[in-house]
């Protein structure tokens, strides 16, 4: 219950944070909202010598409109993202996913960028980010670079963020007018999803013109269900058509087996949940 000793810095600018990261290197750990890091530190599964807190960097907070994208600051708390009208209008599947992410207290404290950088494949934000084709803005000593969502998630708890870099913001291409749904399957409410599906679709006269589907906890990273997307394109938004397309949700997945279900069960769930998510998205 008590973390090991560490030193602590709370820089007020990204530049200062990067300098601290450069100075302390491997001994440092960045804390954003801390809602996943602090339990790990409390149970002493990790013992960094230096913790660098991004919580005092005001520039990393907030949601803004940037033409064909909206930009979410990495340190924007989930609760703020969930209540943001820009997100609701242009990236509704994120709003849906945030609604039931963890619990209210954690949504107050946990951050959008922190959760994505933590890269828990059972985290609720990876699938929507993939589905929407988010771009991750990463700042390092050499400047700023953008990484596409498809390249961001590398493995279990592993992303494209370099060891001397910080995720500063996430750019979400606008999906204005797209239907959206995040369907989460849990046994009890405070669990991470056993499987979840982020679906956002553009429906044109009863036909699914485009669909973007992300899968949560179906592999070592969040996954994009491209097979389903392809199968849905141009199909009517009917139960039968969507059911046929959703059968492809298992393609390329490698789900875990744990107390809540084995891999076979998760694959089955993915097809059912995908169907439901797409139908809900198309209907809404």
């Amino acid at each position: 219950m008590i973390p090991a000793q560490f030193d602590y810095l709370a820089p007020t600018s990204v530049e200062d944070a990067l300098a601290a990261l450069a100075e302390h290197g491997d001994d440092a750990k960045i804390i954003a909202g801390g809602q996943s890091l602090l339990p790990v530190l409390r149970m002493r599964l990790n013992a960094p010598e230096m913790v660098i807190d991004l919580g005092r960097i005001e520039s990393l907070r907030g949601v803004r409109d940037d033409g064909d994208a909206i930009v979410i600051g990495a340190m924007t708390p989930h609760a703020v993202v969930g209540a943001d009208p820009l997100v609701a209008e242009h990236a509704a599947v994120i709003s849906r996913a945030v609604e039931h992410l963890a619990d209210a207290q954690i949504r107050h404290r946990g951050t959008f960028g922190g959760a994505l950088a933590h890269a828990d494949p059972a985290g609720d934000l990876g699938a929507p980010a993939l589905a929407l084709g988010a771009e991750f803005v990463i700042q390092g000593p050499g400047g700023t670079r953008r990484v596409a969502a498809d390249d961001f998630f590398v493995d279990l708890f592993e992303t494209a963020i370099g060891e001397d870099e910080i995720l500063t913001e996430v750019r979400i291409p606008k999906h204005t007018g797209w239907g959206a749904h995040y369907e989460k399957f849990v046994r009890v409410a405070h669990q991470w999803p056993i499987v979840a599906v982020a679906a956002t679709v553009r429906v044109d006269g009863g036909t699914i013109a485009e669909a973007r589907i992300g899968l949560t906890n179906m592999g070592s990273t969040p996954l994009r269900a491209r097979g389903v997307e392809e199968a849905l394109a141009g199909q009517p938004a009917t139960e039968d058509a969507v059911r046929a397309a959703a059968a492809r949700a298992t393609e390329g997945t490698n789900p875990p087996s744990d107390l809540n279900g084995d891999a076979d069960y998760r694959r089955h769930l993915a097809t059912v949940i995908t169907r439901r998510a797409v139908l809900a998205a198309a209907g809404g």
């Binding site: 001994d27 804390i31 954003a32 990790n46 933590h118 990463i138 992303t159 963020i161 060891e163 870099e165």
Partner: peptide, 25 residues
């Protein structure tokens, strides 16, 4: 098998996991 959220498989045991860029939720 447990869900791996808060156990050694977070890849952080003992040493700092730099590959995640060190940011967390």
């Amino acid at each position: 098998a447990a869900m791996p959220h808060f156990d050694a498989s977070t890849g952080m045991e003992g040493t700092v996991d730099r590959t995640t860029g060190g940011t967390d939720a």
